[in-house]
Design a protein around this nucleic acid. Structure first.
Length: 593
RNA sequence: GGCUCGGUAGCGAAGCUGGUUAUCGCGUCGGCCUGUCACGCCGAAGAUCGAGGGUUCGAGCCCCUUCCGAGUCGCCA
């Protein structure tokens, strides 16, 4: 027998009189007296009302717990009271027979299905299969499928081939902490799960594949954040041979906007080409390398103006100011914002404001007011009119920038008129420094990844070597794609020349041997004639998060882990049997409880 | 690992300056109800107030320790 002739979302007025079979979860039973009750049956496609008018059937239904799965065989009838709110609201099914398919043995559920998003997240994750019955939760997963399908087809249309790369591979010496897998046949040795298919895709370029992409699973053993799931995530990983930065930009500027336009919650405000902002400028103006262009606030430098008035944690502090015009926040609200900034940024935020007459008052106003020359200089620099709030950050350059960046984000959200939330604004961050002085070591280190081509290539490295330019001024041909303050993606023109690679390593006191041992396959491959190539890898989870308007990345993942990288539904990670450990040559010194 | 916030019935929350029997909504169970659709009405059950210790005549509330969760910093080439 057919288990259903129709889904719970498809019966309409036209089906009146038909004999049908539906199947689904018994969402609710509304008894309205005598032997009349309405049973709501839900499946993936919608809900359908079944009207029970028969004593025996009613008894059967009343004995069932909600969320049991049932099959209803009956006739479609017009409702006497039509419900315009639901697509199947014009009809109902008069059942001849109700078959129980899967009994729900729990009288009370851990949470109510249609309000599961209000429940504690731990419960939601433990009973994720119930949480996902909630259409609101489910729709994000559906959206994800649609976006992934759209990305695949757009990339294929642009001539990219999807090629899968190994999941069990070698540990890479740079970057995040690896997930390791013990090798049974090689005692004491380990595979690593890839942090990204970086080296494989570069090897594909060297092998002659012209355009590669993959919806690639990536694994990094680092702590979670709201926009970063622990352990694993997916990237739209891509690479192009004989390509420049602009070639990569062009592809994404062509692939992403239609997908954002079609599947996004908001309109897309950016048109190709997206804004290009040099890294140093972004840090200076926005206090972050992932600016949210929906906010019209910018950080200004007041180091010169306020440097000698006694304000700031130490002599020579860099002082950044974020002026907010027409700000209606009261003193209490301002202090709350400052406290929130401190929590997020890790250093203090200060403030003062002008009243209707333009008089500076509140917060640290006394420092500003102390000297009329300073006062005028500040007002001029910030072009302060009346009712302007100024949030200040002070400290070393990076701390001040970071605090100002957090302030911009918070004030954009807290003050009316400085942010249009209902749109998508893209930008490219370009010209990242190649090297930096490491905070711990005090030595020069790679700023980001060593695979990027230094802008200017060998010439620039040689100039730096000869002392003609500051090595810290060397830029990498590297870029980030940012949307609404979310870092969607990082990419680069790769360094495909072994000689430049060795030279780039020599700048940080490493050399040919280091390159060979760290990246043996790539180094060797490049000595056999490699094409110049460039690529990028937008995060799929983050993209879907932006499209759905969700604040947490876990809302767009079917089975996410919690903050501590545990799957409490499956019980992972878990202890294993001694036999398994023996086979893997592993001895546990402190057995788990 | 640091910091911030939180943990009170199956779920979500309230609980004042420490003071009688710990409230409310949802859900569950029972009764009533012949057109509900977040059904309605009446009633009932349901709490080691995360755990342990302390202060006090008296602790959900104050103090200490600890566990768990979220956010954030570190970390994420």
């Amino acid at each position: 027998m057919q288990s259903r002739t129709h889904t719970c979302g498809e019966l309409r007025r036209e089906n009146i009189g038909e004999k049908v079979t539906i199947a689904g979860w018994m969402e609710n039973v509304r008894e309205v007296g005598g032997s009349l009750a309405f049973v709501i049956v839900r499946d993936f496609y919608g809900t359908t009302q079944v009207v029970v008018e028969d004593e025996a059937l009613l008894d059967q239904v009343k004995k069932l717990n909600k969320e049991s799965t049932i099959q209803v065989i009956g006739t479609v009838r017009e409702r006497s009271n039509i419900n315009r709110k639901i697509p199947t609201g014009e009809i109902e099914i008069v059942p001849e027979k109700i078959n129980v398919l899967g009994r729900c043995t729990h009288q009370e559920l851990p949470f109510e299905i249609n309000h599961s998003r209000k429940a504690d997240e731990t419960f939601r994750l433990k009973y994720r299969y119930l949480d996902l019955r909630n259409p609101e939760v489910r729709d994000n997963i559906v959206l994800r499928c649609q976006v992934v399908a759209a990305l695949r087809s757009a990339m294929t249309e642009h001539g990219f081939l999807e090629i899968t790369t190994p999941i069990l591979t070698a540990s890479s010496p740079e970057g995040a902490r690896d997930y390791l897998v013990p090798a049974r046949k090689h005692p004491g040795k380990f595979y690593a799960l890839p942090q990204a298919p970086q080296q494989f895709k570069q090897l594909l370029m060297t092998a002659g594949f012209d355009r590669y992409f993959q919806i690639a699973p990536c694994f990094r053993d680092e702590d979670a954040r709201g926009d970063r799931s622990p352990g694993e995530f997916y990237q739209l990983d891509m690479e192009m041979a004989f390509a420049s930065k602009e070639d990569v930009f062009e592809i994404l500027e062509d692939v992403l906007p239609p997908i954002f336009a079609r599947y996004g919650k908001y309109n897309i405000a950016s048109k190709a080409p997206f804004a290009r902002i040099p890294y140093l400028q972004a840090m200076d103006e926005f206090g972050t390398d992932k600016p949210d262009l929906r906010i019209d606030l910018r950080a200004m430098d007041l180091t010169e103006e306020l440097g000698s008035c006694g304000f700031g944690p130490f002599e020579g502090s860099v002082i950044k100011a974020v002026p907010v015009s027409e700000c209606k926040l009261a003193r209490k609200a301002i202090e709350k914002v400052c406290a929130d900034i401190e929590v997020q940024a890790g250093s203090k935020a200060y403030w003062f404001k002008t009243d209707e007459k333009g008089t500076v008052a509140g917060g640290i106003a006394k420092f500003v007011n102390a000297d009329p020359v300073v006062l005028e200089a500040v007002k001029a620099k910030l072009s302060m009119g009346p009712n302007t709030l100024v949030i200040l950050a002070a400290g070393n350059r990076s701390a001040a920038q970071k605090t100002a960046g957090v302030a911009i984000k918070m004030l954009g959200a807290a003050c009316e008129g400085h942010m249009d939330k209902e749109k998508y604004e893209f930008c490219w961050i370009i010209d990242f420094p190649m090297y930096e002085i490491g905070e711990e070591s005090g030595e020069m280190e790679f700023c980001h990844n060593p695979f990027s081509m230094p802008t200017g290539g060998m010439d620039v490295l040689l100039k730096a070597e000869r002392g003609e330019i500051d090595p810290l001024s060397i830029m990498a041909d590297q870029y980030d794609l940012v949307c609404n303050g979310v870092e969607l993606s990082s990419g680069a023109v790769r360094n495909h020349d072994p000689e430049i690679m060795v030279k780039a390593f020599e700048m940080v006191n490493l050399g040919e041997e280091e390159v060979k041992t760290k990246f043996p396959a790539m180094y060797n491959a490049f000595t056999y004639g490699a094409p110049p190539h460039a690529g990028i890898a937008p995060g799929v989870d983050r993209m879907v998060m932006l499209l759905s308007g969700e604040e947490s990345i876990r809302e767009v993942i079917a089975f996410p882990m919690n903050k501590n990288a545990q799957d409490i539904m499956m019980g992972a990670p878990s202890a294993v049997e001694q036999k398994q450990l023996d086979e893997l040559h592993i001895r546990i010194e402190q057995p788990a409880e």
